[in-house]
Design a protein around this nucleic acid. Structure first.
Lengths: 154, 154
DNA sequence: AAAACTTATTTGTCATGACAAGTAATTTCA
DNA sequence: TGAAATTACTTGTCATGACAAATAAGTTTT
């Protein structure tokens, strides 16, 4: 018999939300491990910024924040670390001095290619036994979740 | 035409792994917001520990770590905060003094019920437009991902 | 029984996310 | 034109996760 009084109790074992959180944590852990094994001194978060700068020639803090769903503060700090590591360069805009544009360096480009292999490997590990058809559904649903949550947070 | 030379490049826009990470971040943000709106002074991570202690009468650091997929260090710190907040109690085992067992307090129990409402609400927000059938597939797949990553990390 | 090992937990450090506050450059508009 | 508002970014603080090291209490071995 189901509980009539408390219908809105969440059972973690059956919660999609909770399993997304757990999976994210575990996938990141796998990614970290593979990066470490390959002696690549970069974090998954730094990687996503480096990735976008390898795809799009020049981006500002705000643009990176929008692409990565992170806030300015975090982007600011991560780009600073990437800059210190020599993976990206920062150029002040000459007309509007508030804006900085970031560019990937050659060192950065080399690293991106290596990290791609690690990202690919970690995806394969995580997605074993999951059919392409299911992967499609998951991807579609996760994109829907991003829309839903984004709308709510607006 | 697909790129023959670099087959193992990851496209973030199509990566399930990446979207799991993004969704986890956004869902947590929604949960935070709802908790804040309800003036509930607890974090999602603290909540998951409190949840298990409300379901299972007494648990050790190790048991909590296994249930939550976190490491001892994190559990140790989070339980300490919950203890200071008066939401849980710690009892040293008398036979083996290395072990501590945690119990939820009455204050903790009251909070759990309130947080359930928030967790329920945030699930509803995140899962809009996603059919029950799809939710089943996602949950099944995410559980598979936990198995895969857990195996790899062993 | 003492030394070596194992187990359970804690503490320290760094990276990141949330959130608030601060700074500096640019616009707006009275 | 100069004060107020806005924009773009930076810095500070706290919570958490990864990872290494430390601690303390048992257990095993010689």
């Amino acid at each position: 018999m189901t509980n009539i009084i408390c219908m809105d109790k969440v059972e973690l074992d059956k919660s999609v939300n909770h399993h997304i959180a757990l999976s994210a944590m575990m996938i990141k852990r796998v990614f970290y491990k593979i990066l470490n094994e390959n002696k690549l001194n970069i974090t998954p978060e730094q990687w996503s910024i480096l990735y976008y700068l390898s795809e799009i020639a020049s981006l500002t803090v705000s643009e990176l924040a929008e692409l990565t769903f992170k806030d300015f503060a975090n982007i600011s700090r991560i780009t600073h670390k990437l800059e210190v590591a020599g993976l990206i360069k920062k150029h002040k805009n000459s007309t509007d001095k508030r804006i900085s544009k970031f560019f990937i360096t050659d060192t950065g480009k080399k690293l991106v290619n290596q990290v791609h292999q690690c990202a690919y490997k970690s995806t394969n590990i995580a997605m074993q036994e999951i059919e392409p058809q299911e992967r499609e559904i998951i991807l579609k649903s996760l994109k829907q979740i991003l829309i839903n949550t984004n709308n709510y947070l607006k």
